[in-house]
Design a protein around this nucleic acid. Structure first.
Lengths: 209, 209, 209, 209
DNA sequence: AATGAATGAGGATTCATTCAT
DNA sequence: AATGAATGAATCCTCATTCAT
């Protein structure tokens, strides 16, 4: 049965697009890729399903856009570590703290991305591709940070430490999703940063001797 | 109105149930909760959809059973670390290696479980509940291991280190799902075990001084 | 999923048949012909669906048996009017009172029968045929009673009055089904009996003059 | 995955809704609530099942709409008794005749409503609620008519006579459904009207004395 | 006398998508 | 820029029924 809400304002493409994406973030966060139906997005945003297709080519396109926008929101929330003269451990811990906080504020991109990444469907959704793309960006930044703060590491070690660092971040995020608000995510990220840093230093020192 | 067709094979409940679960593991691993259709499971296992409903109350029930059986398979694959006289770091590394190997062999339970756990649907699927239950078992085992090998830790530290250890395992698993066979999961788990162990020792020593 | 109850006693055909009919009366009374599923009957009586088919040829057969048994229960509840020397109006009122009371006690036969009779499905269910059969019996009894108590009526008038009498009973039963326990069915049946009797007398007198 | 077919006719909501209701009246009249399948309605009206769900929320909603529209059709068919100067018995007989004729022409509302009313399903269908609502309207009209034509009746007697009058109408309708075209429904309604009227007069006179 | 297991057909409903307006 | 109406395919699940044991 038709349940469209009454028109609230005259046509405004940008605003409508935003409302659709807002609704889609909510639904995808709740139900994942397959669980997200255009009808559900329509019900939440108040626009008819056909209007969603005016703004987005298809469901895949919509979800890729959700990931993209959500990643940008998240990136904006990760403030860059300020003081370039501080000690390496300080700087790396500061970054970890920022990431932890950003994940508390804008976690949609990561939650949805991880869901997409855990699936193995034959035809890869564009949202998954998009997630892997933006994740690569994050990966490179971490690698650059490690190389900067712990010089002298061989590329293979940098790669391993970066993977370990990012994987740990993912795991801690998942842990908080499971265990809820009681988890002190900032503290865990600080621990993580310290362990990664010390491992890097040890490898670096072992190699230079 | 509806007429039943002639029987084709002798009824065998246990065997049929197994075939259904085998098919369901495969599909859920590929497509997650919503993406798993009874029709697809039926196509893979060769039994009609209505027969699936003889063995399982509904889709939810089927997926919970998948998680349960998959966890048991996984548990059996994690061999307990043998030599009780070995050094703690040796023993903990051995466990990590076993976990890494088991996740390479029987990862369905964890992949599906993580998917379910990342969703936030209002009505919690039974599969999610089941995953949280078995995950709690794993959690307790890790905690016991830490307390055994690094005595003198306060409960709060044990809790934090256990969370960190399990979260790291999750993250590394996800990393391998993303990056594929090129990842040396065993090596990463060894690194993870060492870092957790050293952190535990440091906390323990700091506290005892 | 299989949900059969544990065996409660050794095989006993009569008892099982009774349990099935008891369950079927309940379900058909609630949901009508189409709404009654073998699975629902099975769930209520605790016997597996296949056992129901051991006792009854098919669903149609089961429902016809429900009607038949329910009608017999009802017939037994209608006590015959006792005093043969009483005045006609007394006797007819007494009968009406008995019918009213029996409909308060054992109304399944009529409720289910009316449901079947209001449908117009192409293939007539055996239950409907059965209901029409037993209803015809009731019709004949009423006709005999009218002819006995108000002699001299032409057959056409007897037929009309009988139809009117039975139709009124049906309508009053429906009225009570709708309006609930607050309805004084006995009082309404007394009124009905008196009006039918007086109409009969008037017709008879008019004809004899 | 699913691709839509080309449009075949210009969209016209009102007309489609009418076609669906026309089909639904026919099917519900034949098979009752449970027996009415959306697929059958779709086959009769020519619109695909999914289109029915554009116009009606679910099957319950459709059947409630059927009752509502059918009642309106019936109400329109019951012409109001014309001559306000005629004798009360004349006027009441005229009304009864009109009701009888209307039930011969547009009986769907009553047949379907009675089916719904005889069921006792735990979750009450909206169609049932709708039927009770419109039936209440009919009830009030009859009560008003009785009060107008036989003044001086106490409210309790009006209530009882109204119930008896409406119940008789239901019963006579059922009788014709069973016995078929051979029944002279108009004659039976005339008899019914006369008996109710005379009973009312007698009660009124008895009370005033 | 009974039942565990199975089966094809069909149940209501939702799906992603299209298109004329 | 937007939407009412429509649509075929697919969704989960229940149906009446059968049959080997």
């Amino acid at each position: 049965m038709n349940q469209a809400a009454p028109r609230r304002q005259r046509a405004n493409g940008v605003e409508s697009r935003r409302r659709i994406l807002d609704a889609a973030v909510q639904i995808t966060g709740e139900r994942g890729y397959e669980g997200t139906s255009i009808a559900a997005v329509s019900a939440v945003c108040g626009l008819p399903a056909s209007s969603i297709y005016w703004h987005f080519k298809d469901k895949d396109d919509l979800i890729a856009a959700v990931i993209e926008r959500s990643f940008e929101t998240w990136l904006a929330a990760v403030e860059l570590p300020g003081d370039e003269t501080a000690a390496p451990l300080e700087r790396i811990t500061e970054l970890a703290r920022n990431v932890a906080k950003s994940l508390l504020e804008a976690p949609d991109f990561l939650r949805l991305g991880l869901m997409l990444v855990l699936e193995r469907r034959p035809e890869e959704p564009r949202g998954r591709v998009e997630f892997l793309r933006v994740r690569e960006i994050a990966h490179e930044r971490v690698a650059a940070m490690i190389e900067l703060l712990v010089p002298g590491l061989d590329p293979e070690s940098v790669r391993m430490l970066t993977s370990y660092a990012v994987a740990g971040a993912d795991g801690l995020f998942v842990h908080r999703e499971i265990a809820g608000d009681g988890v002190d995510l900032v503290q865990l990220f600080e621990l993580h940063a310290r362990l990664v840093y010390e491992a890097a230093v040890r490898i670096s020192e072992g190699a230079s001797r």
